[in-house]
Amino acid sequence: MQFLVLSRRRTEQFSDADFDLLVPDEAAQARHLYKIGFTRQIWHRGDRPGACQIVEARDESEVRKKLATLPLAKAAMLDFEIIPLKPYAGFISL
């Protein structure tokens, strides 16, 4: 099953310097999650600091478990919105 994950940096509680300390490890873990097939696509958000990604997992619990491995998540520096996705019905007749 695929999910849309929107993350938002908690900039009201943490400084840019706080984030900068963990960004290299965050990027390394993000690459690992991509390599194992969890993250399918990922982008930086254009509206605020954070990321948007398409992930694949059995259920939302697995999504939360994998996201929890990110250093910024471990440090409680991110908020996540997880949206389950369904196939687009308009392609059924193709």
Rank of each mutant, 00 (worst) to 15 (best):
S93K: 12
E26A: 05
I92M: 08
L94F: 11
A89Q: 12
I82M: 01
E81M: 06
Y88A: 13
P84Q: 00
V5K: 03
T39E: 07
G90Y: 08
K74R: 15
R64Q: 14
S15T: 15
F19C: 08
L67N: 12
E60Y: 03
W43K: 05
E56K: 02
P87M: 02
Q2V: 08
D79F: 00
Q29K: 15
L22N: 06
S15L: 03
P49T: 07
I36Q: 14
L22D: 01
D47K: 06
Q29I: 13
L72N: 11
P24V: 00
D47H: 07
T69N: 08
Q53W: 04
D18V: 03
K86T: 12
A27F: 06
K35G: 11
L72G: 09
A73R: 07
L85K: 06
I83V: 15
L85A: 10
D20I: 01
H32F: 03
E81S: 10
A76M: 07
T39P: 01
H44I: 10
T69A: 05
A57W: 02
L70K: 11
D16K: 10
Y34M: 11
D47L: 09
S61T: 15
R64C: 06
M1T: 12
P49Q: 01
R31A: 10
M77H: 08
R31W: 05
E26H: 15
R64F: 04
F3A: 03
D20C: 03
A28R: 15
D25T: 04
F38W: 00
Y88N: 13
L4G: 10
S61N: 14
M1N: 09
S61H: 14
I54M: 11
P87H: 03
E56V: 02
P84L: 03
I36H: 00
E60D: 02
Y34R: 15
L94W: 10
R9I: 01
D59W: 05
V23M: 11
V23Q: 10
A89H: 12
Y34G: 09
S15Y: 03
C52N: 05
A28H: 01
